[in-house]
Every structure is written in structure tokens, then in C-alpha cells.
Amino acid sequence: MSLYRIKQFYRSMVAKIEDKDVDFLKNHLKTYELLLFNQLPIYEQKHCINVARDVELTCTRKKIQSLFLIKVALLHDIGKIYSTMNPIDKAIMVILSKITNGKIRMYSKFKNVNMYYNHGEIGCKLLKQYGYDDRFLFLIKNHHNNNIIDDIELNILKECDDKN
């Protein structure tokens, strides 16, 4: 655990959506996507916005088309709309995962453990109902999968998610 995690916890505790965030969302999400997005807790919304802004910067720097990946970044944690975790619960999950080297994953029958480890899969299933293409769903599902290393878009998403 590092200073980064303390900063992340603090940011989640004071998170708020500003007018510039609302404008950013309206520029990148359709109405039905905004309705889904707004079901996330505020701290998760702000996290996704921060990830999407970093994706935009990274893509610009690497001269990669970014609109598709920005939308993925905004919706990458959409599976968490079913979560009841607050920032303190999430911090506890991070700590438990760290001290057990991920072995807590075997307790996925508990809602918070399941959400922490499987929100990508949950989000993928949710978005599949809306007709997203396979590539979009792949990125949502695998944004925490460290076994896939040869995918530029996935690597950008994971890098930006990890920073936020």
C-alpha cells in the first residue's frame, strides 16, 4: 500500500461532480448511457471521469483515436451500479486483498468480494443487453486482467485506471 492509495481514498471521500464533468459526460455519452452512469455512486462516477480524461490525454500523446476508448473508460466500472460499497468498504476490500494476496477472492459469495473482483464481468453482462460490440465488452470485462498484455487499448485503459 502506498501514498497513492491514501490519496485515492481521500479523493473518493471528497468526490463531487462539477459542471465541467457534466459537460464532458454529455459530450461522450448518450442519454441512456448517462442514465446508467448516474446510477454509480458519486465517488465511482468521479473515478470514471478521471480515468476517461487520462485516456484522452494518453491517446492524444500517442496519436491514437480516443472517442471509443473514452466511452469505455467512462463505463468501465458500470458493473458497480449494483454495489452497496462506500469508500470505506472499498478501502477495506483493497486492504484485505493486499494482505491475503488476493486469496479473499475465494469468498466471492459475499456481495462486496464479488463486486470487488468481478465488476468487469458484471458490467460486461449488463452492457451486452444494450448491444455493445464485442470489442467494447472485451475491454470492460478485462480492465483488471493482468494476463492480457499485448493489447494497446486495454493497456491504456488499465494504466489510466491504475493512476486513478
Rank of each mutant, 00 (worst) to 15 (best):
Phe138Asp: 14
Arg61Gly: 05
Arg11Phe: 00
Ile148Ala: 06
Arg5Met: 06
Ser66Asn: 09
Arg61Trp: 04
Ile81Trp: 02
Tyr43Trp: 14
Asn112Lys: 14
Ser83Met: 04
Phe110Asp: 07
Lys98Leu: 07
Asn27Gln: 13
Gln8Thr: 06
Ile42Glu: 13
Pro87His: 03
Val72Thr: 05
Asn145Ser: 15
Leu67Asp: 15
Lys30His: 13
Tyr117Glu: 12
Ser97Gly: 08
Leu36Met: 14
Lys90Ala: 04
Lys71Val: 11
Asp151Asn: 14
Gln39Ile: 14
Leu67Val: 10
His119Cys: 12
Gly131His: 01
Asp77Asn: 12
Arg105Phe: 03
Ile6Thr: 08
Lys141Leu: 13
Asn147Cys: 05
Thr58Pro: 00
Leu126Thr: 03
Asn27Phe: 08
Asp133Asn: 15
His28Cys: 05
Phe9Arg: 07
Leu40Cys: 12
His28Ala: 07
Val51Asn: 08
Leu137Asp: 02
Gly102Arg: 02
Asn147Trp: 08
Lys109Trp: 03
Met93Thr: 10
Ala73Ser: 08
Lys62Met: 10
Tyr32Leu: 11
Gln39Cys: 13
Leu40Asp: 05
Phe136Met: 11
Leu137His: 04
Arg61His: 11
Val94Asp: 10
Asn145Gly: 15
Ile99Ser: 05
Ile88Ser: 03
Asp133Arg: 02
Thr31Asp: 10
Leu126Val: 00
Ser83Asp: 08
Leu127Ser: 09
Lys128Phe: 09
Arg11Ala: 08
Glu56Arg: 07
His28Val: 08
Ser108Tyr: 09
Gln65Phe: 03
Glu56Asp: 06
Ile140Gly: 01
Phe9Gln: 05
Met106Ser: 11
Lys90His: 03
Phe68Asn: 05
Arg61Cys: 11
Ser83His: 04
Ser12Lys: 15
Asn142His: 15
Ile64Phe: 09
Lys111Thr: 02
Phe138Val: 09
Leu25His: 06
Leu75Ser: 03
Lys46His: 12
Thr58Gly: 00
Asp89Leu: 08
Lys141Gln: 11
Leu40Asn: 03
Asp89Tyr: 14
Asn145Thr: 13
Asn142Thr: 09
Ile95Arg: 03
Thr58Asp: 00
Val72Ala: 03
Lys20Met: 13
Phe9Pro: 02
Leu96Ser: 10
Leu3Phe: 14
Asp89Ala: 13
Asn38Met: 14
Asn147Met: 09
Asn146Phe: 01
Asn146Ile: 13
Leu3Asp: 13
Lys30Ala: 06
Arg135Tyr: 14
Asp21Gly: 09
Tyr130Asn: 08
Ile104His: 04
Asn101Arg: 11
Ile70Met: 07
Pro41Met: 12
Leu139Ala: 11
Asp150Pro: 02
Ile122Gln: 02
Pro41Thr: 15
Thr100Pro: 02
Asp54Gln: 09
Arg135Lys: 11
Glu33Gly: 10
Val14Arg: 15
